[in-house]
Design a protein around this nucleic acid. Sequence first.
DNA 1: TTGTACGCGTTATCAT
DNA 2: ATGATAACGCGTACAA
Lengths: 357, 357
Amino acid sequence: MAATQKDIAREAGVSQAVVSDVLQNHPRGRVSAATRARILETAHRLGYRPHAAAQALRFRRSRVILYLMLQPEDEHRQALAEPVLGGAVAACAGHEYRVLVETVATWEHAAEVVADRLAAGVCDGAILRVFDDPDPLWARLWELQKEGATMVVIGQCSDDRLASVAHDVPGMLGSAAEVFRSRGMSRLGLLAPPRNTRFGALMWHAWETVAERMGLEWRPWTRALTSRSQAEHTVYGWLQELPRPEALICYGDPVGLGAGAACRLAGHPVGSRVERVVVGNADLEWLHDPGVWRLPTSGLEVGRRAAEMVVQLLARETTPAPVRVLPELTRVESSLAARPPGSQAAVTNRLPVRSFR
Amino acid sequence: MAATQKDIAREAGVSQAVVSDVLQNHPRGRVSAATRARILETAHRLGYRPHAAAQALRFRRSRVILYLMLQPEDEHRQALAEPVLGGAVAACAGHEYRVLVETVATWEHAAEVVADRLAAGVCDGAILRVFDDPDPLWARLWELQKEGATMVVIGQCSDDRLASVAHDVPGMLGSAAEVFRSRGMSRLGLLAPPRNTRFGALMWHAWETVAERMGLEWRPWTRALTSRSQAEHTVYGWLQELPRPEALICYGDPVGLGAGAACRLAGHPVGSRVERVVVGNADLEWLHDPGVWRLPTSGLEVGRRAAEMVVQLLARETTPAPVRVLPELTRVESSLAARPPGSQAAVTNRLPVRSFR
DNA sequence: TTGTACGCGTTATCAT
DNA sequence: ATGATAACGCGTACAA
């Protein structure tokens, strides 16, 4: 059904090779202006599109990038994932690459899938979205890279020989602490993932460093958790006794919502006595109550950066260093108080954010 | 770098055609067990993978399905999109299809992109995720379908000649109303998208039908809106006067959250006097307060169904009828009251749901 | 039982 | 200025 170069050649009364040259703008032995115009007209009339598989075979390039995601059972992480993919797709489209999406249940299969798709010529490079920090996976990926595979990891990858994009965790926590410190608060709480994951360990280490340097009072109000209900119980407990924390740093939207619910139940609405900031992947503006601080790492930006890195790797042979993306500090604007009915989604205040060592 | 059949043939001392036969298990002229074993061993040793582009060229099938999404500027809709894609990817993988993701800014370009990718042999079929109901798009898609294109629409498509998957809107609203009606409430409010979109029109029409049939008192508490802050203002206003609505039906998570905030501010927490149910795409369990009813259409299920339909269309030449997916009724469980600290994410009560005409 | 030859649609080289 | 030809990797009809 689709027209090929052969069809055009027959129709225009020339050989197929000439058609190819004209369509490529190859000034080989120069084609006469008349036949050139005739060929272009015919191609247009027949709705010619070069066949992707034929080109892939010929160029030994599929112009496809694999986006492999470890399917998180944890629903929280699903919410934040689409913007990342969207950013990657947009960036790839800008470089004439298409994005193929696949999922794997566990990281054990990830390297194997990447290797297979690369060997099958399905894709030229890969982006892996990983949530944990599994050493065996990095080792396997490093092997693949040495064999010539091109890939970028989205996630906290502890192997610097692999290209990766992730939060700037110290920057995130440092900025969060500074927001409250600069407003005269020193009793700060932290709700973050358990230290037994490498991401959690990174987080807690950064927090201890930052909190000590700033002279904060933090030890009574730290807790490793990830779900909304855990946060709800924990914060509610903290607020029953004195002294209370003046502000809470929450990793993730569910934890932020849980902390918020607990504050309300305990009679401490946002902005009155207990401030809150939600850090991490948090692209959804409308999720939190007015007055809550947000320190989100833009998913769109993360995806975009990852895609740009793959494309760059594919083009030149440089090995880019790992990238750590700094979040933007914003605040959910008071809605019932400050805004007239009918106005659009929450506008946020933008504040400066800097990197921490 | 990757091994081809020719490599295997050379290594095993046979011709490439024999290698092909063995790898396909084609009992052409039957191959001797010895050479057969030798070929298989060599293929395994060399890590042979059939080249996707070569197979696509040969079979005139790419084994790729395009997932085209209209990139919604509206952040609310972003949250719900990943489960849909995940469902589609999973279903496609089960049929040996891969999923290619692309985005377009407006539906004006959607048909054009589908036609182009199909013509270029990039994909065998397409899934279009559309949020509006643009007649010109359906017309263009119908043209494409007549020319032999295979595609399925995710969204409220008013053209029944096209295959589509979407919410069962009357079922959704009918079930929601019945939840409260069966608990003795008759003053029900509705917060739904404006009628000037076809989806909104569908929604309001279904609501009028259902509400009148059930003999509800509903006219004072209906409002067309989509954002959290609009919902917040509207509901707060309703609660200042008597009579108050006994329950609110909210389309979408942002609207549900806004209504919730307004209820709290007005001194009507969930379960006390004003019940709430959130309907529509709502895959995130942790989003709402305990006691809120949820009537979500599973995004995973929608994506899965769409993919199955494409695959089926690709296999046989049947034209499946539009599918309308009924949501599941659940309730966010009370957390601080009923559950011990440390227990996992909210378990929900499942209740029966039926279809409405 | 195995090898040869052709075609899928493109691009590129080499003759004319 | 243009046409024949080879090659990319694979599957298959046909000849040996």
